[in-house]
């Protein structure tokens, strides 16, 4: 029996270890090693920090990095602000069938490829698009209005794409808040604002944290939305990674960029978990 249990353990452990080592651990270590090498001749390399120095010394790279981080943060905040009232409505105000129908409706758009969603926004926002036509029809604009290819369009796309990942954790945490607690707050003379601040938001904190982490990460790593909806000046850091790897064939610099993106995203995830005393198992599992 003992030997059988041991054999079972080994059999089950093998796929897990193969997966995590060959597809996650070793490739990332390898990417880090590649980012540390500098080409000094044909097939001649030496270890140096040259790629990271290039990143710091080239204003375009650094600016794009900071811009991506800032815009992802803004996108996360906007998503939270839009999603919170809706989640509260679904969790606390809607009842029975309406409640489950609304929740399901929130999920529907996300069964569709991100490409299709982005395409939808392109049709809506472009110069010959629906909103431009609507504005002209109602007399609010004299000629065609181009709303695509700017930062606001990227923001709309990012918020739209991430919405589900904010709504689901928020609804789940808000549902566990008993109505009586909110009523007690009113009975004790609290205004709606103080109840929101002192009862609802603290209770929803775990949902807010896990939603924000996922939305931030998805925005940071997004390639499609900034490429399709953004203009020539609105570069995203993932676009730099892509161009170094596929267009310029400078894998060393591209790997350094990839590592920086990974570092930023891990640092934010870790920081948010530490700040709020949550763990990765609870947030993701």
């Amino acid at each position: 029996m003992r030997a059988e249990a041991k054999l079972g353990l080994i059999l089950l452990l093998t796929p897990l270890l193969l997966w995590l080592s060959l597809l996650i651990l070793i490739p990332h270590v390898d990417m880090f090693l590649v980012s540390l090498r500098e080409r000094v001749g044909v097939n001649e390399y030496r270890i140096s920090l040259a790629n990271y120095l290039t990143f710091i010394n080239e204003p375009l790279y650094l600016r794009t990095f900071v811009r991506t981080a800032v815009m992802s943060t803004i996108a996360t905040i906007i998503t939270l602000l839009i999603a919170f009232p809706v989640s509260y409505y679904i969790a606390k105000i809607a009842r029975g069938r309406v409640q489950s129908a609304l929740f399901l409706l929130c999920l529907v758009p996300f069964w569709v490829s991100e490409l299709v969603r982005t395409f939808g926004w392109m049709i809506l926002l472009r110069e010959t698009g629906l909103i431009s036509n609507l504005l002209q029809y109602t007399g609010l604009a004299d000629g065609p209005v181009e709303m695509l290819y700017n930062d606001a369009a990227i923001m709309v796309g990012l918020v739209y794409t991430s919405m589900l990942f904010m709504v689901v954790p928020l609804v789940t945490t808000l549902e566990s808040l008993p109505d009586e607690v909110v009523e007690a707050g009113y009975d004790l003379g609290g205004s709606w604002f103080s109840i929101l601040r002192e009862i609802i938001i603290p209770h929803a904190a775990p949902g807010i944290v896990s939603g924000s982490i996922v939305v931030f990460m998805l925005s940071l790593g997004n390639y499609l939305t900034p490429t399709m909806l953004g203009g020539k000046d609105s570069l995203w850091f993932t676009e730099l990674i892509y161009s170094q790897f596929i267009v310029r064939f400078n894998w060393e610099l591209g790997a350094a960029f990839g590592f920086l993106l990974l570092g930023l995203s891990s640092a934010i995830v870790w920081g948010m978990l530490k700040l709020t005393g949550q763990t990765l198992e609870k947030t993701m599992g």
Binding site: P27, M31, L220, G258, L261, L262, V269
Partner: peptide, 24 residues
Amino acid sequence: LYIFMLFPLVIPGIVLGISILVFS
């Protein structure tokens, strides 16, 4: 090992792609 197993969810997809590309 369980925590490590969750990592792929917090690694940006494009980084997963390039790391596998580099290694292979």
